[in-house]
Simulated assay, not measured.
Amino acid sequence: MEDEAGDIQNRPKELEVLPNYTDFPDENFIIKLEHSTGEFLAHDLRELIGSQPVEGKILSLMGGEFDINPPKEVIKFYGKRGDDFQMVNIVVSCYAFDRIDGQLVGLPYHISLRPAQKRGSPQHTGPGTIDALDLETLRDGFPRYMGYNPFSNAFGLFVKGAMAVPKGMHTDVVGIVYNSYFVSSKYDRKDVLLPASCIGLLGARNALLKDYQDFRCEHYFKHFKKTKPRKIWGCDSPIELFLLQGMGALGLRPQLQVMIFPDGSTFPLLHEMWRDGRRSKAFAKKITEVDFYFESNKLAVFCDSVAYHSSEEAIAKDKAIDEKLERIGIKSLRISGPDIMRSPMECAKYVQECLNSRV
């Protein structure tokens, strides 16, 4: 199944009429991750190019300046050390497209890492292959996965070049390759360097830099054993996507997967928490992680599936969370999975009404 294309099942029919829902844009578009994830993660993912991770000894062999295409000295070093590499694609899935300042922009709902594969397993390659490639051209030809369903085990067919997205394919299952890189197998974790642009956002705070370093090594630089993608950010279920698409049709742009803490602080991801000076271990102290958050209105929207929110224990837990949020001035709005499946547009209108009441 992991080699196959797949759609998201049981879609609400009323979404089918939305612009570009089954009609992938013919014109060029851009993806501005800063608008969705914040600048820290956007910078972080943009730095994942060439051979990774960047180690101090590697940078020294490059003459102190990073080169996307490793020079012969680096290739020789990799070979002597016995490195093998996996090619990793950063895949962005968009829930809609919008025109902003005259430019068509893809609006992300999910970001994941997907390894290149061979015969159903992650592909391994040696330094010689990297030496033979022009790594600056990996994104030429609009690389993409068609039928990329981040909620199942169908992770799409990889294509590049002139092959068009089939008419009728839902655009939210076109996985767009945002960046590509090769990750080595025998890097020295203690010698891994952090991107200067991201260090600038954190400052000289060693404990936070260590948390950030650990995150990069565990998420970006850990070799894949299977081809299943590794989620970095975004929606966790189809009902979240469907509600997001309904809200998007009304012009509502919430933050996704936001952590809320007892002091009222909110963070859409760990990167922003580090930037605020909080260690990764502070994650355990959060009240909850909300599906969608409207910061200016202090409205937290939860998509409650029947499977996880119907038992007495789950109902009591949800009530306790709602009470804690209320004490810090945040209103909880819980929408059931069946209601979303019945009419995501009506649910989106309900969210809009709640927002209007909190202006």
Rank of each mutant, 00 (worst) to 15 (best):
E2G: 15
G63Q: 08
L209N: 01
Q103M: 11
L45E: 02
I30G: 13
I176D: 08
G234E: 06
S357C: 08
M169Y: 14
F294N: 04
P12A: 13
R327V: 08
V290S: 07
G264D: 12
K13I: 13
K80I: 08
M273V: 04
D236E: 06
S280D: 10
E272Y: 10
V183T: 08
E39P: 10
M62G: 05
T22V: 15
N28I: 11
C198E: 05
A314K: 06
K286Q: 11
L107S: 14
R81H: 07
D44M: 07
I321F: 04
L250T: 08
A5T: 09
R278E: 10
I90H: 01
Y220S: 00
I58T: 09
P344N: 10
G234W: 02
G161K: 03
G246N: 02
G79E: 07
L104R: 09
C94W: 02
C94T: 07
V91F: 00
L325M: 11
R342H: 14
E16F: 15
G141F: 07
H223L: 02
K32N: 13
D236S: 05
E313A: 07
R278N: 12
I330S: 05
R327L: 14
K13P: 10
S296G: 09
G234Y: 02
P254M: 04
L333Q: 04
I49K: 13
M345K: 08
E295N: 09
D83F: 00
T37S: 11
S152T: 15
L208G: 03
D83N: 00
S197F: 00
M273Q: 11
Q117R: 10
I260S: 05
G106D: 09
S180Q: 09
V359S: 15
S237C: 07
P344R: 05
R327C: 12
I260V: 13
K190L: 09
S180M: 06
H223T: 00
E312V: 05
L33R: 06
E27N: 11
S311T: 13
F142E: 14
K231T: 11
R144H: 05
D263Q: 09
V359D: 14
V183E: 01
E65N: 07
E2T: 14
W233M: 03
A164P: 04
S197H: 06
P53N: 02
P115F: 00
R275P: 07
S332E: 10
D67I: 15
R342N: 13
E47S: 15
D304Q: 01
F97W: 13
H223A: 01
F215Q: 10
Y109Q: 08
E55M: 09
Y212M: 04
V17W: 12
F182W: 02
L194Q: 03
K57G: 03
Y78V: 01
D304P: 02
K167Q: 12
K190T: 08
T266P: 07
I330W: 00
T22I: 13
Q86D: 00
L48T: 02
